Amino acid sequence: MKTLFRTLVITVSIASFTACNANTKQEKQNFAVAETKLETTLKTEKPEIKVALLLDTSNSMDGLIDQAKAQLWQIVNELSYAKCKEESPDLKIALYEYGNDNLNADEGYLRQVIAFSDDLDEISKSLFSLTTNGGNEYCGKVIQTALNQLDWGNNDNDLKFIFIAGNEPYTQGNVSYKDASKLAHKNDVTVNTIYCGDYNQGISSYWKDGADLTHGDYMAINHNQSTVHIASPYDDKILELNKKLNKTYVAYGKAGRSKMELQAEQDSNAMDYDKANAVSRTVSKSSKFYKNSSWDLVDAEAEKSFSYDDLKEEQLPEELKGKSKTEIKSYINKKRKEREALQKSINDLNQKRRDYIAKQSKSPENGLENAMLRAIKSQANKKNYIWD
């Protein structure tokens, strides 16, 4: 009986490894992997899309940073339509800056701005914190650092990407880009390179070779090109719904108030670029990627680990202090229903907005956004990911 149970467990484990992988390994290899990782494979992991964005923040890269700020939400929205089999993957984004004289020389003029996170407001805040200052751009060093510092995991169904953007030779620094590429390949991480300038100059500067070594994509963009946002007849209504959506958040705990202020700040940052960019952020806030269980009671209640019995009076917002558990539950349930209805309305309007934009004679050709999405979709197809 024990032998039969062990066989069944290993069989289930093998299935979990190959659920979204089009390139199934040989049976003996699967058996060996499953047997050595028996404990970890007993638990089915939800697939994740992990994107580490490595941005050159030297003097000449102001345009690149502006593109990243202006195009973040559209990139997030496109990734939200991905499916692995019938399952929607989670999204985690990390951000590094490099090539900036303000950074520590001993550490290679680079900095981890934020580790892998699914907190979209914190990711936006991190992007908006970036400033430029001339420096030394060490591509091999920043890639190696991101590979070593970040938790890439070992789920075969995950999509793991590094996107590195810059405009100096890829060979600079005392860490060979070839060694960094070998480390990436070992960790099943695809390195995609984005040269900010002439396509052929990027090739001669070894940016294409850096991508080829991990079967990634090499791209060249005009980093000084302004982001193009297409306005639609649905934008004003979506932004109106965003104001109502914000009122469904019930901040609690020590971080509650500051997190709600951060939410409003990132709404403002998006609007400062363009109304259509603010619309894209609103759509992101209505997607499965926008998670705030650490400070919002509506999201927190949906977590399996949540219990009303664990809530303390001092953690509650003013409107819920002194209320019974039944009253709090009723209030949260009301807010949840309001949010779900608003999110549905936003997503319905966004579908009409997408259709409208698709019919325009000239689609926006946004450098960083288009480069990243083309690479992600192409490489995701190899693991049987599809887009709705």
Rank of each mutant, 00 (worst) to 15 (best):
T131D: 01
S307R: 08
K304A: 13
E318F: 02
I357H: 01
A375S: 14
Q343E: 13
V279C: 06
V33E: 15
I328D: 00
A278F: 01
D119E: 11
G202I: 06
R281N: 12
I164H: 04
S13E: 01
Q351Y: 03
G202W: 04
K28Q: 15
G140S: 04
K50A: 02
L95A: 08
V228R: 01
D106R: 11
Q112P: 05
A180N: 00
N77L: 12
T36Y: 11
S378G: 13
D101C: 03
K337F: 01
N148D: 15
Q351K: 04
S58P: 05
Y308M: 07
E137H: 08
Q201G: 06
F289N: 08
E97P: 08
I194A: 06
L55V: 12
L72T: 03
C84N: 01
C20H: 09
D310A: 12
V191F: 09
N102S: 06
L183N: 10
G322T: 07
T131G: 01
K186A: 11
T171F: 10
L110I: 06
S60A: 03
V12F: 13
M271W: 14
T11F: 15
D274I: 03
L64I: 09
R374E: 12
W152L: 06
D236A: 15
I49D: 02
S280P: 09
L103M: 03
N136W: 15
K208R: 14
L159T: 00
S58V: 03
D188S: 12
S13F: 02
K178D: 00
K208W: 10
Q74R: 14
S258T: 15
